[in-house]
Amino acid sequence: MTSPIRTRVSRDSEKRRDLLERMVLQGPGFLFITIFMATPITLVAIYSIFQRGRFGGIVYKATTENFTRALDPVYLGVLTDSLKIAGITTVLAIAIGYPTAYAIAKLPTKWRSIALVLVVMPFWTNFLIRTYSWIMLLNREGLLNHALMKFNIIHTPLDLLYTQSAVVVGLLYGYLPLMILPLYASIERLDPQLGEAAANLGATKARAFFSLTLPLTASGLIAGSIFVFIPSLGNFIVPELLGGGKTVMVGNLIRDQFLKARDWPFGSVLALSVIALVFIFFMLQNAVEKRFSSDASE
């Protein structure tokens, strides 16, 4: 019985209500992200082209000086060191995480969930405390040196703490669960019959792994690498506690520029370089993922 006019009116009001609903649902969240994430990052980008005031603060006179200063070998060295440390950590996390995730996926069902809880558990422990535990283990009087001396493997304690390796171990310890979980999720989804089919068709184990398993688990590998690489790159706690000031990463530099040197423009340039590196990493991952997914669909 509804007249065409009434239908149009109600459709219009329906549309208006949809719009209103969308605003109510999405508005507060997006407003919040705009104020507390987009604005701060924009601010960092703006500060990077201005000069530092004599007593800290910002002098609004444009300059490229901060960027050229970041290319100084001292700072460039810190950036490449950070990339190297985050890269090695990610590679080691893959080397340990992949077989571990594979092993968990092959466990009987009831053991699987227990193993997963055991992987997650350390991650819910305060990061500082987990890092601190390695001071106790690696110290000259620490447990590792103690054990090695007791078994007569070494006679004088080794300087394990305050080295770059200690920093890598600390980061690896902190972020390994973030590699194992996405890898497990993608390995668990694999169809065991695929492996059998590959074997029946005469593929060697290595061939089956590289042309079948690896491409099909690439998404987990990539997610895990992002989760390990990004927090490792910007980390300043582990280099400070386990690197003992000898290993300086870009996170330490940024922190010091903002809180000690009070050179916010230069600190902003360094922060932008971290964002840029993260962005490049994402693009690389994207390219790899595309290649792998087209390989797998072939």
């Binding site: 992200i33 994430m37 701060p40 990052i41 601010l43 927090p231 910007g234 903002f258 971290v274």
Partner: peptide
């Protein structure tokens, strides 16, 4: 927009930290 909504979880915490300090 979907990526924007999840971005705060991915932005390195140190960048978010100094950005908020600046704000």
């Amino acid at each position: 927009l979907n990526a924007f909504a999840l971005a705060p979880a991915i932005v390195p915490d140190i960048v978010l930290g100094i950005g908020l300090l600046a704000l």
